[in-house]
Design a protein around this nucleic acid. Structure first.
Lengths: 140, 140
DNA sequence: CCTTAGAGTTGCGCAATGCAACCATGAGGA
DNA sequence: TCCTCATGGTTGCATTGCGCAACTCTAAGG
């Protein structure tokens, strides 16, 4: 197989997966949209995250992030921390409710994923993951 | 590493890729949106494709597909074939212009992908692809 | 102080989508 | 043959997610 054919075949698989991932994203949680879920994840993963940090990580406009965060604040899934000296903006934290919803959504996604991978060996999953890590690094 | 950890790590890679794939989709072609590109691909790949078939394959509402196809018809990238006896609806075909644009977009995507994979061996790509095939089959 | 840069909000418009109501037509039974 | 209905397609309406631009507010640094 030529290099071009190999690339072509991989491309088919990538597009197939991206298309299907949309469906997956839609039944994460009835009350937590995919974007909201992602925002909460970033807040958890980023120490002292502010809205601008979330926007930067997700590659979204700050206005978009502002509106999502506003919704999450009103839903009591997120709260603003007290300001810290030497910084501007608000530091975001998950409320216990927010953490609960995030955990719930995450567990749904993972159980779904686990059921798909039920007949895979750990070594195969690790192999696939390892190649995926390298691929994502190649992209970035 | 436990099975759960393995699934978790793969999940991280999948979400990372899906997020980045959106950026990728946006510079496919100035005149051909990601969805239009996908519609054209489906028309090419599906013998005697009609709008309803495209909607079915892509999992989109027929109204959505109708509007995309309308745009592609107006842009002269797609045309309706003559009706065939025993069937309803319009059979879609690419115009030479449509095929040209599709090829152009495809070559852009693939060259982008190829540049990312420049330092991969064929065997590694094939390995990755093979695992991806199995993964997509597990999903479907 | 005063200027400036960064964080956040909001008004506006756009693109994509789904739902529902609608029209047109072929299929198939009465 | 004719009537009913299922299917394909279009369009109106609402929703969502997004970006740009203009704006406010506040801290940083002269």
């Amino acid at each position: 197989m030529s290099h071009e054919d190999a690339v072509e075949n991989l491309y088919q698989q990538l597009t197939l997966f991206v298309r299907r991932s949309r469906d997956l994203g839609n039944d994460i949680h009835p009350e937590l949209s995919l974007v909201s879920y992602t925002v909460l994840s970033v807040v958890v993963a980023t120490p002292d995250a502010r809205a601008a940090d979330v926007a930067s990580v997700l590659g979204l406009d700050k206005s978009t992030v502002s509106r999502h965060i506003d919704a999450l604040l009103r839903a009591r899934l997120l709260r603003r921390g007290d300001e810290q000296p030497g910084r501007r903006g608000y530091i975001l934290n998950l409320t216990p409710l927010g953490r609960h919803h995030l955990d719930l959504a995450a567990s749904r996604v993972r159980s779904r994923l686990a059921s798909w991978l039920a007949d895979w060996d750990e070594s195969e999953i690790e192999n696939f993951t390892g190649l995926f890590v390298r691929f994502n690094e190649s992209i970035g």
